[in-house]
Nucleic acid binder design. Structure first.
Lengths: 213, 213
DNA sequence: TGTACATCAGTGAACGCGCGTTCACTGATGTAC
DNA sequence: TGTACATCAGTGAACGCGCGTTCACTGATGTAC
């Protein structure tokens, strides 16, 4: 209603053409992010790369950060989909640890396949708007995991479970960033360690549930 | 020798006065970082806040990022000092986990006491120069820990130990950032979980050492 | 202890540049009858 | 199927602004004799 400053995407695209333009802008932004990094990217450059003029960008995005926000939200949506759509029967028999290992590897793969994935991950710390995208996403996922596990493990304290899940998610993202920042480290070994720590943290929580701590 | 673009601090301060000026610049930068965040900070603003003119800043710092780099290096130096100067006799008797818990709490305290500590932590992801400061620091600390433990635990594989220590350090920093970003979470509980996971990871490593894996 | 000189520390004022953003518009697509 | 009109998508050109940085300088401090 009011014209508050926002980073929401602008008016609904009515024609197919305009949806293509939005994609053009986003891929140009990703390319540039990869090339010049977060602090040097500019709307003028994005438009040039997308072979558009600046007002075209401002038709769909209210400002520069809205573009980066959309990139961030798309990456996190793809990552979160892995968590949300875990195979329920398929891997049910496996241990926690091996399920987690699989999930971490998939998350890294998806991030790698996403143009500028590593840079988007880094950017999500840098500015309050983007940090907020990250925070909300992590919170939502922790909540989802908690809701999923409450009926399965009776006696579980919802608050404790949330904190454990939130911690594990943060650890997972720290792993993904580290894999991008330190390519010379042994990726498989890092995944193994992370999965083992996360599983350990969950066992800790379930132990508390049993003893009713 | 050559005049490569660099972020090294400039020429030695010969007079007491100039050392004070450097400190003035750094505290003004920290204040601004706290107020406007990483992406909006500027040299002109820093100078205004420090009640100096821009050329005074450029006498001591070759460019804008050198100022932020110095802030980053000082914070990490203070954090790393905690690791480096661990009491050797004092807490020797305690479990790994409780030693780590203590160290994590101290690291958070030091970061909190440092002006703009939270923002400095976030900024250390955002730009290649700063990411590099972070990476080097983490690597050095992982190396130090590895060197410290090699003589104590015979049969330890130096490579595996390094990777474990590197992972633990990353986890520790993720915790510190999370404490700043999510103040409504239970800090003590997060510290407990992190310490438990790190201890678990070390036990894993020591287990491998014994079986000679 | 005083003075002449060298070095150091900081100023005043401005530079060119690219930034984010907008105005007034033209051409393309869709809709009604 | 054709035409008149409304809406949508994107252009051309420019705006004011604050950025990072530098030039030529003045005043303050230290040094030699």
């Amino acid at each position: 209603m009011t014209a508050k400053p926002t980073t929401e995407r602008r008016g609904a695209p009515h024609q197919e053409r305009s949806r293509e333009t939005v994609e053009l802008i986003l891929s140009a932004a990703a390319e540039l992010l990869e090339e010049v990094g977060f602090e040097k990217i500019s709307t003028n450059q994005i438009c040039k790369r997308a072979k558009l003029t600046p007002p075209a960008l401002y038709r769909y995005f209210p400002n520069k950060y809205a573009v980066l926000k959309e990139l961030g939200e798309r990456l996190m949506a793809r990552q979160n989909a892995l968590l949300r759509d875990r195979p329920s029967g398929d891997r049910q028999s496996e241990s926690f640890e091996s399920q987690i290992k699989h999930l971490l590897a998939e998350t890294i793969r998806v991030t790698r396949e996403t143009p500028a994935g590593g840079w988007i991950m880094r950017s999500l710390h840098a500015t309050p708007i983007l940090a907020d995208v990250r925070r909300r996403s992590h919170r939502d996922m922790a909540r989802l995991l908690t809701e999923q596990s409450m009926p399965i493990w009776p006696g579980l304290n919802a608050n404790q479970a949330f904190t454990t899940n939130r911690m594990n998610i943060e650890l997972g993202y720290a792993l993904v960033e580290m894999v991008f920042d330190e390519p010379e480290l042994d990726e498989q070994e890092l995944i193994r360690q992370t999965a083992s720590m996360m599983a350990h943290n969950i066992e800790l929580l379930l132990g508390q549930a049993k003893t009713g701590a």
